[in-house]
Design a protein around this nucleic acid. Sequence first.
RNA 1: GCCAUGGUGGCGGAACUGGUAUACGCGCACGACUCAAAAUCGUGUUCCCGUAAGGGAUUGUGGGUUCAAGUCCCACCCAUGGCACCA
Length: 810
Amino acid sequence: MQQAYDASAVEPKWQKKWEELKAYEVDLKKAKDPYYSMVMWPYPSGDKLHVGHWYNFGPADSYSRFMRMQGKDVFTPMGFDAFGLPAENYAVKTGIHPTESIAKNVETMIAQLKRMGCMYDWSKSENSSAPSYYKWTQWVFLKLFEHDLAFRKKQDVNFCPKCQTVLANEQCQDGKCERCESEVEQKPMTQWFFRITKYADRLVDGLESIDWPEKTKTMQRHWIGRKHGINIVYEVKGSADSITCFTTRPDTNFGATFIVVAPEHAFAQKVAKENPEVAGYIQAASKKSELERQEEGRKKTGVFTGHYAVNNLSGYEMPIWVSDFVLGGFGTGAVVGVPGHDLRDFEFAETFGIPVLRVVVGPDGDTSKITKPEQVQEDAGTMVNSDFLDGMEIMAAKEKIMDHIAAKGWGEKITTYRLRDWSISRQRYWGAPIPIVYDPEGNPHPIPEEHLPWLLPTDVEFKPTGTAPLAQSKELKVRTEKLFGKGWTPEVDTMDTFVCSSFYQFMYLSTEGVGTKSEARSQKSDFIDPKIEKKWMPVDMYIGGAEHACMHLIYARFVTMALKDFGFVQCEEPFKKLVHQGIITNQGAKMSKSKGNVVSPDAFVERHGADVFRMYLMFMGPFTDGGDWSDTGIKGIDRFVQRMWKVLNKRVDQCSPQVRAKVHATVKKCTEDIPALRFNTAIAALMELLNDLEKQGGIAQEGAEIVARLLAPLAPHLAEELWESIGGQGFVIDQPWPEFDPALLKTDSATVAVQVNGKVRGQIEVATDAAEAEVIAQAKEEPNVAKHLEGKQVRKAIYVKGRLVSLVVS
RNA sequence: GCCAUGGUGGCGGAACUGGUAUACGCGCACGACUCAAAAUCGUGUUCCCGUAAGGGAUUGUGGGUUCAAGUCCCACCCAUGGCACCA
């Protein structure tokens, strides 16, 4: 009799063997059928791996293992996004240098990751805070600088007065600091930017070619916000001034009845000098904070300037207003109001008694006076009261009038974007130093490549003061003067950590391990071997959180495109296929340290093993849905593992035809479900099979070999142990994926349901190939069916092969 | 407010091009083993009526199409995620 399956002994045993035999190391040059499978690299925090990591990495590994058994040379690396604020804050609190705490955390996390039993190629790991890595972060900066894609400018930035630091847009929520909830101030500061806006069109158009979730693509499209429209110039009556308005819907321009400019607009500023009412409004508006504006909601405020602008199309004299619902920073800072067909314009017109004209008739044909907001739909509507546009569909009218306005010289067609250039300067310590020095006149100069890595100095305090910690470093100052001359000063800001992660997909392919061979690489000037890059890029499968949709996932695309243009890589898009795992919550709330509801996997892994924990997470529901954490069901997977171990070690001479059919049906199900990341149903199918095997009292050798292989992606340790115990050679993960025989899936007879007037009244067994008439006759004879047919006429009879008979009677 | 996705037993969730709704698991109940408990095994388990056979109801709500609707169409309600005066 076999012993119970003991995960605590079996799992370390196989982990050791995999490591000793380098089972997961990939020869990037020799690999014949490359498949690059990547997960988003974790931040090495002291909190260790949490359930969310397991939920991302475990299933992703099962997918990689499946692809490997399809015969692919699967490369799946792991690394650490190690620069960033948490380590710096920890340093402020404890005085321990981030280099030290990060090294310790990385070590712990590697041990934990190995405990998961994932097939990472550790010989090619990366750590973004290693000089051998950030040398390349700096190199990327220099290349962007060289091509005028990195530049310096003064701009308002988000500044948290309590944390004494600049925050990225994503670190401000509703105008408040994400961490301390203080209200964020807008402060003008000189910062470095990457000119991502230059790539706006490619970033939008490229989305067509990649296999990403539609939702993520939509978010990126919206974030980039490309809009085709026209700038129309309106002359101010009795003045040499003019106001330019951007609009995407010039087709409705015959309905324009007013103009609104932002308080910051030059015309508003000019009027304010002679009109105290306007000046007062502008001053009041500028005092309002982001928060106050939001609290006001959609309530419209404004002030009339006393001036009019002429609509050349209709001759209408439009009053010019100032209102803070128009944003100074967007478009031209002025809009033309078409209250009949725009929600905001309607609200404004209603508040101030401005006429509302109808110029579009909707599908309902209603031409009455407009009394409630009617937003123009892009796909339905006909022009009215619009002179030469009358009767046209709106989209056709839009094209016609744009040409008309442009030809008359009243405006110019233009495309606008919502995307802004990427601010990458951070007044923080723990990041890659920006490789720039300033001459005595204050002009920036790139640090020559031979001086990279431009090392992060260590002689600094971490306490936040509002200026960059690097400014305190004597060593950095001395180093700069020594290399460049007296009076030269270093840049003291570091780079946003998103710069580090924007190109790591290439780094894995060009290194040989943290702190070992990667040191050698840092001596070379090659970014990546073009042959390797061509062979492996783009990444075939990328799995990670949806929260990166408009940050990392845009930045990485931008940097890849730029590197392609510079001639260093050949791929346009870094990630061919992208999948987001769902979020695991605890009692409906996101897990976070501050809420104290983080579930640690360690205790479960210790009790049940990594296989059970991984499988339980996969069994909870669809991978992309996530779910609410509960540990009640984990026992079911534990039982599954124990029972599977037992029954696969019980031999029968031959499986019954029914069990053989079930085995092949299970192969089919797993073959379809695992690559589609439907792990929950694949596991359910294996459970069904297990129930049948137990009824049979065991399994034939041939069947056991199939089942062990089916388990290999989902429960890697259990599968290896099973494979060994049934006499398999080598690692099960190196075996080919089993194939199913479609002939075995067919059965001779089928259970067919019989409905009478839509209600199931009985079941009959029929031969699969029985004729329709025969089956219907048999159905009528079924006792309970017959009862319901008594005294009635069958009007219609339908047979769905092998499924049901539907009888309609009256 | 706008956009997207989704509402199925006590719970997590299955369900192919419309074709026996509730697979699989958890939990629960009863039984076996045990001095007892845990573990394990067996049986049952959508709800209501019925000992049973059987009948009725049921996939957020209300309509519709169809021999047949969780699945398709219309209206509405609710939940989650994203965006939020972007012209």
